[in-house]
């Protein structure tokens, strides 16, 4: 039951954090960590558990962000109303990408995701109705609480924490279901899994659609917190890369891996940005490049797998085990 003690400690720390470290910068930082943890955990379902590396996940993030801002900017509704629409868009797009590519080798899938994401960015940049290069804005002055527009980061922090908890609960449930077992089997040997009756393409597709749905929720939350979305912040390739690296750094295929990755990378980026100002963005790319190389070379399982291996020397460290 060591697992439950760890879980309680992490949960207590997460709940207490914005009250203990209560400056606006710290609260904002906390909220951002949680937000990226949601996106990276969502990515983890397809990238980690299913072993299908999506490099264009931002496209689902964008579905959510544009749907949320669009429902306000176009229809005068609460951005919340856009969330289901964003989910439907993201899941539909995932099906369009996944059906033809998930039956092929993983490279085709990775390339298709980048291609679709970049195409969408170009289309949206040139679509007046979606604000083109300027993007869409949310409510500047909240009409009521359902506009989810707050000055303080504190409400966002707890909202994101709740959504992260739901995301992790869904992931955990999945890993303990037939679908989770099938995904792990498919990752090890698709041929053997199929010979035992696991419908490989379909199972990967479901994982991809679930991941897309949750990623779109992360995008909607992101747009609500910042009050706007534009092609860079909602569909830029850097966000795909960030999400992927956070999950890989923390530990892809581990329940808490993405959270660990986000808790390391988001503060690193925010602090370097506040030191270096605008010049930070270029440096971010360099740092991410270096991290990719280091993970590939030294710890393909991510940081969390180091920790788990030491904690439980005898059992396997495969996917689905909470720390």
């Amino acid at each position: 039951m060591r697992r439950w003690i760890w879980l309680s400690v992490v949960a207590a720390l997460a709940i207490a954090y914005p009250l203990l470290l209560s400056s606006p910068f710290q609260q904002r930082l906390g909220a951002l960590v949680l937000l990226y943890a949601i996106a990276a955990s969502a990515w983890n379902i397809v990238g980690g558990y299913a072993g299908q590396v999506s490099v264009g996940h931002v496209v689902f993030f964008g579905c959510g962000a544009y749907a949320a801002m669009g429902s306000y900017a176009k229809f005068g509704l609460s951005p919340l109303i856009g969330i289901p629409g964003g989910i439907v868009l993201a899941v539909g797009l995932a099906a369009i990408i996944g059906v033809p590519t998930l039956r092929l080798s993983g490279h085709y899938f990775s390339m298709a995701t980048i291609a679709v994401a970049e195409t969408m960015r170009l289309i949206v940049t040139n679509t007046e109705w979606l604000g083109a290069a300027v993007g869409l804005s949310g409510p500047t002055v909240p009409r009521n609480v359902f506009d989810l527009s707050f000055l303080s980061s504190l409400p966002y922090y707890y909202l994101f924490l709740a959504v992260l908890a739901i995301t992790l609960a869904i992931t955990w449930w999945m890993t303990n279901s037939r679908m989770g077992f099938y995904l792990r089997a498919i990752k090890d040997s698709e041929r053997a899994a199929r010979s035992l009756g696991a419908p490989a393409s379909r199972t990967k597709l479901y994982a991809f659609m679930l991941s897309a749905a949750l990623t779109s929720v992360a995008g909607a939350l992101y747009a609500m917190m910042f009050g706007f979305v534009d092609p860079e912040s909602g569909l830029g390739i850097l966000i795909s890369v960030k999400i992927l690296i956070m999950a890989a750094l923390g530990g892809a295929g581990l329940l808490f891996g993405p959270l660990v990755g986000a808790a390391i990378l988001v503060p690193l980026e925010e602090i370097s940005n506040s030191w270096l100002g605008g010049k930070g963005a270029g440096l971010t790319f360099v740092v991410y490049g270096a991290i990719i190389v280091l993970i590939a070379r030294f710890q393909p399982g991510g940081l969390l797998s180091l920790f788990i291996r030491r904690g439980k020397p005898k059992t396997d460290t495969g996917a689905g085990h909470a720390p």
Partner: peptide, 24 residues
């Protein structure tokens, strides 16, 4: 042999068993 390397022996067999029983 196409063993599922990341799994235990029991879990390997469970993959087969899941075909007729969807509950863990």
């Amino acid at each position: 042999p196409q063993t599922f390397e990341g799994m235990t022996v029991l879990e390997n067999v469970m993959i087969g068993a899941f075909l007729r029983s969807s509950h863990r």
